[in-house]
Design a protein around this nucleic acid. Sequence first.
DNA 1: TCTGGGGTCCTAGGACCC
DNA 2: TCTGGGGTCCTAGGACCC
Length: 442
Amino acid sequence: MHLDLDAFFAAVEQRDKPSLRGRPVIVGGVGGRGVVATASYEARAYGARSAMPTSEARRRCPAGTAFLSGRFDAYRKSSSVVMDLLAELSPAVEQVSIDEAYVDLAEGAHDLSVEGVTALGTELLDRLRERTGGLTASAGIASSKLMAKIGSELHKPAGLTVVAPGKELELLHPLPVTVIAGVGPATEERLRTFGVRTVADLAGLSLVDLVSILGQAHGAGLHQLARAVDDRPVVTVREAKSISAEETFDADITDDRVLRDEIESLARRVGQRLVSTGLFGRTITLKARHHDFSTVTRSSTLGQATADAALVAAVAGRLLAGLDTTNGLRLLGVGVSGLAAHAQDELQWEEVSAAEQVSEAAGPAPAGVTAHKDPVWRTGQDVMHERHGPGWVWGSGAGRVTVRFEGPTTPAGPVRTFAADDPALAPTSPPDWEATPVGRHT
DNA sequence: TCTGGGGTCCTAGGACCC
DNA sequence: TCTGGGGTCCTAGGACCC
């Protein structure tokens, strides 16, 4: 079964505020650069749609339309009521988003005949309405995720669609290719140039042709889905692959100081989420959108995973230095991927121990600093060498970077700790640190 | 007053290693 | 006047989803 709440955010608002019932409601960004997250069915009658710029929705909708920025705590609360309801049906529930989930009914004790699941679905939608104080959902029940999802879209809102086994192709083939999740505007257009509009057209293409048109993964996947062949399981637990935060500014920003402040704020949000989930990330990505909406990303992979907001901010700040911001940025984002539950794996622990042994001659590492073999920073060679002499960057943490300098006669000289944004650690020029990272400078 | 924010997955090229 | 064949890791970008 696939279950999807109808116009979810707007429906919660209309439920909680009786004055909004029967009126067009838009939930989303209400600022100059906002987009629509959810349009109520009344607003859809005027052409308002999800992902449409709010300015466009304002043009289309009449006076009296409510534009709301959203109350996510309230949405999360209603969402968990629904998810709890689904958990009563089966232990196998896959929450896809705040308002959508798959349930493997075969994992519960149910009569799986068409009559049985029809009764089950009808009863579920009724109970959902009661428990949420009047929200409605649509559901599709079928022999696969593909057909269940298509079914849930078919009779929105508050509709139940059961696809009887054996009837899949009859339902699927006349529909446009975009009913298949994963076929968006670009794929639709590409397929159209080959005369493919419906799923039946798609099923007429050979595997070899589809792969040559859409690439291996997408082509092979659609070759199967076009035949309603879909054995994707309901996955109950999924591990996060990345954590990020981004912000579109009310007006484009050119001031470097302001951009750096934004990076720090974004990095703090990411850092807090890393800490609260107990995760560490090794690859840090900066995302920037220019005044003309062109978007670039720059990333840097550390020798060791971190959850330190100041370190994330320092790396992201360095990545920003390689970008041309003279015409202003409309968005900045900071993300962390390569997530792990620990800062370093077993092998790296051994290497760290070796580094710590070496450092004994120079005294213990400063509090809050984690030693590691691979350099997090490449030092600005000229600046660092001039001021401090040759050394290794060998530790970082809590917004600081530790450098072990070579002594006059022994390899292990004094240890000095720098703030992550110390100019001595800054690159001499972007091409310099974009080159092969090295741990040692002379 | 065009175009959010949080994600996932895939591809392709280059570096690097054996 | 020639220069392999895998495999992994990293980076950047694009498509897509809700």
